[in-house]
């Protein structure tokens, strides 16, 4: 869903829903428990949290929105961190978890102490916590759907996968497989592991290209589209439609191609600002709103029309981002009900 479409959906929902807001949350304190800060996505995630959290505090919506990151990416350490938050008397804890299961004991303690727990991105299985999950399968399926709209005759696709053995890779791959099944004019002619890194993807694609027939489209997992484009160019082939993953270098390449020869594609990924969605969901739960335990993160899609805007707002080496508002959160909640 594009941001504009998303907002119109929000407006619609806001018009049909009675004004929610049963309790005052101005004295409530929310903490973010984060397990890792070592890449650009996580850095952007923390920045978004700080920006929206500070704004919410100065607007008087909540009393505090403090972020904590464990010094090592370890479940036992994060469990201790969560227990410390219980002691510090937070009303809600928002978690990006190091492990889906190993924090359950600490989370049960928090729930037992009457604290609202919301997990996102790295979600947890403890039933008392809320989960804001990413539908990676849908992310794969939508790529093939887009290609089906663009390429009437169908043809051969090249699939670039992520890091072998990781859950995310399996899910996106399953979604792509489902998409190809639904659109049988496509066949996956080749499959390589790009490990979500441009240099790895470039090497892998360069290796498999000589054995492939003509390729009309490349489906990816993000962080690998630019490398694929370089490899295809080096092999002297025409550039197929490469679905991108919102990285700055990918979007920059896209803009160059568009200016040179009118190249069209789309790009989708999860915005790091999903942390702010979790913040508002926690605020809504504290507010007394009825929130289903399982929510789904909307994708951030960059299209031909929004490319320049996304490019401008994305720092070098980072990934396109969007911060969510209270109304966005209400829309996500309404959609899940």
């Amino acid at each position: 869903m594009s941001k504009a479409k998303f907002l119109s959906a929000v407006a619609l929902v806001a018009a049909t829903l009675p004004a929610a807001g049963f309790a005052d949350t101005s004295d409530k304190r929310i903490a973010l428990s984060n397990n890792y800060a070592g890449n650009s996505w996580r850095q952007a995630m923390l920045e978004s949290w700080a920006k929206i959290g500070d704004q919410a505090v100065s607007d008087g919506v909540i009393a505090a929105a403090d972020a904590f990151t464990t010094s090592e990416n370890q479940a036992t350490e994060q469990a201790a961190q969560i227990q410390n938050m219980i002691l510090q008397g937070y009303d809600a804890i928002v978690i990006n978890a190091a492990s889906p299961t190993a924090l359950n004991g600490a989370i049960a303690e928090a729930c037992g102490a009457g604290i609202t727990v919301v997990s996102f991105d790295g979600i947890v299985t403890e039933p008392c916590a809320w989960r804001i999950a990413v539908d990676f399968k849908e992310m794969g399926r939508q790529q093939v759907e887009y290609l089906a709209e663009r390429i009437e005759d169908g043809g051969n696709l090249l699939e670039i996968r992520g890091l072998a053995g990781v859950f995310v890779d399996d899910e996106i791959h399953a979604g792509i497989a489902q998409g190809v099944e639904e659109n049988d004019k496509f066949t996956i002619a080749g499959e390589v592991n790009g490990d979500w890194a441009q240099d790895v993807a470039q090497k892998a694609v360069a290796g498999i290209l000589p054995s492939l027939p003509e390729i009309v489209g490349v489906v990816t997992q993000g962080g690998d589209g630019y490398g694929a484009a370089q490899a295809i160019k080096a092999a002297g082939r025409d550039t197929p439609i490469i679905v991108l993953g919102n990285r700055k270098d990918e979007m920059q390449w896209w803009a160059e191609q568009r200016d040179a020869n009118g190249y069209e594609t789309m790009s989708l990924s999860i915005a790091p600002g999903v942390s702010t969605l979790a913040l508002w969901v926690a605020q809504q739960i504290l507010d007394g709103a009825e929130v289903p335990k399982d929510l789904t993160v909307p994708f951030l899609t960059v299209t031909q029309d929004t490319l320049d805007e996304a490019l401008e707002s994305t720092p070098d080496g980072s990934v396109a981002n969007v911060e969510y508002s209270l109304d966005d959160a209400k829309a996500v909640i309404a959609e899940a009900q």
Binding site: Q74, T76, A79, S99, T101, A102, A108, T125
Partner: peptide, 11 residues
């Protein structure tokens, strides 16, 4: 913790 993880105690 109530459940395990192959990397739970590396620290």
């Amino acid at each position: 913790t109530t459940s395990a993880d192959a990397n739970i105690a590396l620290r």
